[in-house]
Every structure is written in C-alpha cells, then in structure tokens.
Design a protein around this nucleic acid. Structure first.
Lengths: 334, 334
DNA sequence: CTGAAAGCGCTTACAG
DNA sequence: CTGAAAGCGCTTACAG
C-alpha cells in the first residue's frame, strides 16, 4: 500500500505537504506548482488514503450508521419500506462523502457498541426505538436521527409522517363510498406510535360520523393471521364492508388470504392500505392506499443529520411529512 | 472515551494485559484472576474498543464491502432481489463478527477506492461486473466473491444459478401446456450472462420441439416498454400465446401494462417469470415462475468469502445453485 | 508556503 | 503469565 510517506519521499517534500494536498481545500496553503506535482504523483502511484488512520488521528470517521431492528423471523431488508429507505440513505450519504455501515441490532446494548466502536459521526434509526430512546441518547452523544418516533423525549431529531391524518383519510374515503361498518387491522401494541395514531385517526373520524368500528373489529396482527381476521370479519353479525390495514405489506397478505378463501376484493370486502408501494398498482384490484413519501423521508433524515453534524447545537428538529390518499380500485361504492 | 490505557491504569497492569483480556481467546496467556478483574472493570467503565485503532495496528479491519451497481435511475435497493440478498449478507456477517459497509459504484475506479480506503477484508459483488472483472481483481488483491458471473476469467469465486436450466424449464412447461408459439422479453445485451443463458435455454428447448420463437418475438426491454411489447405481441401474425420474462420484477410490470391494456393473463397471454418473489403468490393470477434461492445464494457467497479470508490460497470456487419451476396460475392449458 | 514533533488507540514482536 | 518498545498511517498544533 502506498502511504503519504512514500509520496513525500518521491516528491522530496514532507508528509505534511502531501497530506495538505490530498485533503484539498487548503486554499493557498500549498503552492500550486507543488500541489499539482504531488497530485499527479499520488495518482500515478495509486494512492488511496487509509481511512482508519485518518479516522484515528482526526477523530472523525466519516461513517454514518444505519440502525435497523433485527427481526429474528428473518431478513430486515425483505420489507420494501426499510430497503427503500436504506437505499436512499446510502445514496445520499455516499454523495456527501460519508460511508454507511448497516447495523442490525437486537437490543439496546448492541446499539451503543455499534455506534461507538467505529466512532460513527451520526446515526439514522429505521423503525421504532421509542422505548429505549432515552438510554440510546444518553450513552451515545453523537448526532442521532430517529424516524416515526412518538417519544416524549424532547429535542430529538425526528422525521415522521402525519399518521393520524392517514387514518382520517382512510375513514373519510370509506364514508364517502357509503361504508357504514368497518374494521381495522395492524400490529397493535400498548405504546403510542404510528399504529395507534393511524387507528386513532381512523376510529375518531368514524365516531364523528356515527359509524361503527366495534372493539371486536379491531384486529391485532400480532395475535391473529390474515386468514383468521378475514374469517372473523366474514362471519360477523354486522359484517364490516371495509378494512383498513396499516401497511401495504399487510394488505398484500390480505389479498393472498382472500384469494385462497375465495373472498372477492372489493365485492365482498373493500380494503385500504398504507404506504403506497409500487406494487399497489399491479395488484388486482389495484390497491387504494395512504401514500407516504419514503424517498422524501429518507432524504430529510439525511439532511437533518448532516446539518446536525455540521452544527451540533442546532435546536432539536422534528419534521412531519404529509400523507395523501391514492385512489385505486380496492374500495367498492356501496 | 475509555481506552485500554485508562483501564490499565485503574487495574494497575500494563495495556498489553488489558488488550489480551479484551481480545479473549488468549487461553492461559493471562491468569484467570486478573482476566476476570479486568473484564469487570472494562464493563463497569463502559469500554468499547476503537475499531479504527485496531484496524490500523492489526492491519485487519473486519469490514466486508457489499458492492452494488449504482443505477442512476434511482434506488439500487428498490429491487427486491438486491435488498434481500444484501439483507442476508449483513445478517450473516454481523453474526461472524464482521461489519458491512455498502458501496454503490458508478464505475471501476470507485470500486478500488471503496475497497482500499477502509482496507476491507473482502467484498461481495451484487450484480454483473464481468466486463471489469479482470481489472477489479488485479487492483484489489483481497478476497472477492462475485455473483452470477459468466466471465472467462479463471479461478474467481462465484455463486450463481443454473440460468440455462431456468430457460429450459420455462420452455418445457409452456410446451407441456400446449403452447406452440412463444415470446421472450428481457434486458438483452451482447454479453454472455444470466439473460443470454436464460434465453438460450428457452430458445434451444423450443427449437428441439420444433416450436417457434421467431426473432421478432424476442423483445429487448432496454429498448421497448412493457406496453410496446404487449401491443406488438397481440398484433403479431402468429400471435404468441406465452411470454417468458427474465425476472418477476418485469413480470409485474407486464401485469400492470396488461391490466391497463385490458389484456387478460392467462386467457389472452400466458406468462412465466423468474425469481419466485413472495409477491408472485398475491398477484392475480398468481405468477408461475422459475425459482431461485436468493437466501441460499447470499449465504453461500458469505460462506465462500469467509473461507477464502481464512485460507487465501484455497482454490477458486464456483457454486451453481439449482432452479425449479413453481407452478401457479399464469399459464393457460391450451 | 513548509516542516518537525507528538499523538490518536491499538497490536506486533520481542524479552523476561 | 506480564510488560516495554516500536509502529500502524494519518492529523493536530505549533513553529518558522
């Protein structure tokens, strides 16, 4: 491997001069003549700077950590949401001269280790980390950007979407199409978060219109399979005519189950999803879904992180992107 | 940040002793009593080793590079194939104590820089790099594992699938269902590779059965849109009854186009895809597809790379995974 | 505009 | 079983 020392020796200058040239932007700190000569030499010798050495000496790694939760039931990037999000992050960060290291973490202690070991300059968290958020921040005093957080911790950097409005839009759309008995399905937990907000927006809008969303038509996917949910819906007394699910991933599983159970969407049951994946367009019927701008979300997360790195004492920033309903063919007019 | 020195000072031993304890596996090189004492101390002080320093001193980074081609039309991880593959790599490598840095490369020089700068211990290439393969190897003398390579360069480590057989299986399936006029669509190039092999297997099997695959029914997606292809097929003289496409991604675009153009699959046109994505099951009609084991492929790529790192002079290893046809509902019996 | 010195936090290679 | 010395390849902070 070619080092600064090697180049310095061949050029007859000190390491420092070479270092200055390699780092560019030294504006007038090196004479142009020598700068050019050294650049050419470095190029010719195939010099590639050693990032570890740079990182150690400069105490700046140029590494950004992308932190995903390790779902032990398989591949965290099998989910289109995560993979698209991560894809954009890598693209933007690379362009800004940062390297992206991806970490799957099981629990809290993994996070500290991952971030500190390579002295990451910042981290973006994909997925919900609210329950450990305070601890994460306490132990990792570097720029951190969270996504979809509904944590009470103040002054965190976060980018999320208007989940409540998403639920409102779904409800209004069902109402405008004459539905008067509805159901909801998602991975419900006890914590305030994207799921509970989407449900709240949905339920409250229906309540205002005096439309039913009975307790037993709120299905928790943590406990029940799509098949179980569908058969419960279809055999209900006041059979719901529409189902709102909290992701297109879930919606596609509902399609699969409905197909196997010979339930027709939207004739037997109307469906609204969430995310607006490209997939939605090619399903039959094409899926009506609440759109969120994943690419924009990732870009904003990067933007906040980069600004926070440049200016650590900038005030905590939380951005909330808008959502909209994309009308397709999975909701029947009753 | 806590350093070895800090711990050494508090423990009243030398840095070397602490270093030995932190690296474990020093079997009898440190007395058990001090080892335990130091471990406890390190834990209590919240010690996290500095990977840059380690990397620099030990000349071993524990970093694996995952190299993807930067498709400037967008997000390299929007493709389910790449994201699932990458997801598995990260999971396995993390478990083996390696860190994964993801690199999108535009061209050849990007690769060298990416791999050398952090002194990656090895790299896995996702996508086709055949045209630059020789140069990549010459300039980067570390363990490299390629995927889906049909390069003539000898002794490379590669993991691929039996693409030719995939084409054969699709052809045979169409034939067994009474189809006698067929079409093919994929991103065709002049190079020998996965696409040309799938086409060859398909075309040669049809030729043996004296079944048509006329030149003008071999569509190049680089030049034509799914819509254009469908309208060309539908207006052909000897109208093909079946279409074989080289990925499920493409198949899903065909579904979309067919839907818009009011062409029924499989009634107007039968379709076979390639990859067997989870998505296939929820399309209507469910997509018949040639299955490849992406998870297994990724696991094997990791396995080869890890063995090559441990044993650099092991002979070049090329693994070819089997494929099989998954029968669903997108091919009509004629 | 250029350079000599010290140090980032570790490991290697040796000595005991 | 333990340690002192040197060095990995850079940058920082100073001096000129």
């Amino acid at each position: 491997m070619v080092t600064l020392k090697d180049i310095a020796a061949r050029a007859g200058v000190s390491m420092m001069t070479v270092s200055r040239v390699m780092n560019g932007n030294q504006e007038g700190k090196v004479s142009e003549a020598t700068a050019e000569r050294i650049s050419a030499l470095a190029n010719e010798m195939g010099y590639v700077p050693n990032s570890s050495a740079r990182s150690l000496a400069a105490r700046s790694s140029r590494i950004i950590a992308a932190v995903l939760r390790n779902t032990d039931d398989g591949n965290p990037l099998a989910d289109p949401y995560s993979s698209m999000f991560l894809g954009i992050i890598i693209q933007i960060m690379r362009q800004k001269g940062y390297y992206v290291m991806v970490h799957y973490v099981q629990d809290y202690s993994d996070i500290t280790f991952s971030l500190q070991s390579w002295r990451a300059e910042g981290a973006i968290f994909l997925g919900v980390f609210d329950s450990e958020l305070r601890k994460i921040r306490n132990e990792n005093r570097m720029p951190l950007v969270f996504t979809d957080s509904y944590s009470n911790v103040r002054q965190i950097d976060n980018v999320g979407i208007d989940d409540y409005k998403g639920g409102v839009l779904a409800a209004k759309y069902f109402l405008s199409h004459g539905h008067r008995s509805l159901a909801f399905a998602g991975p419900i937990s006890n914590f305030k978060g994207v799921i509970s907000e989407r449900l709240a927006g949905f339920a409250e809008t229906l309540a205002q219109a005096e439309t039913e969303l009975p307790e037993n038509q709120i299905y928790n996917l943590v406990h029940q399979s799509p098949e179980a949910i569908l058969s419960s819906i279809m055999s209900s007394e006041h059979r719901p005519t529409g189902l709102f699910v909290t992701s297109d991933q879930i919606a596609s599983e509902i399609y699969g189950a409905a197909h196997r159970m010979d339930i027709s969407i939207p004739d037997d049951l109307s469906l609204i999803g969430f995310d607006d994946f490209p997939l939605d367009r090619i399903l039959t019927p094409a899926l009506t879904s609440v759109h969120q701008d994943i690419t924009g979300k990732a870009a904003r997360a990067c933007d906040i992180l980069l600004r926070r790195i440049a200016q650590p004492d900038m005030p905590g920033e939380s951005q909330t992107l808008d959502v909209k309903l994309i009308e397709r063919e999975s909701v029947k007019y009753i």
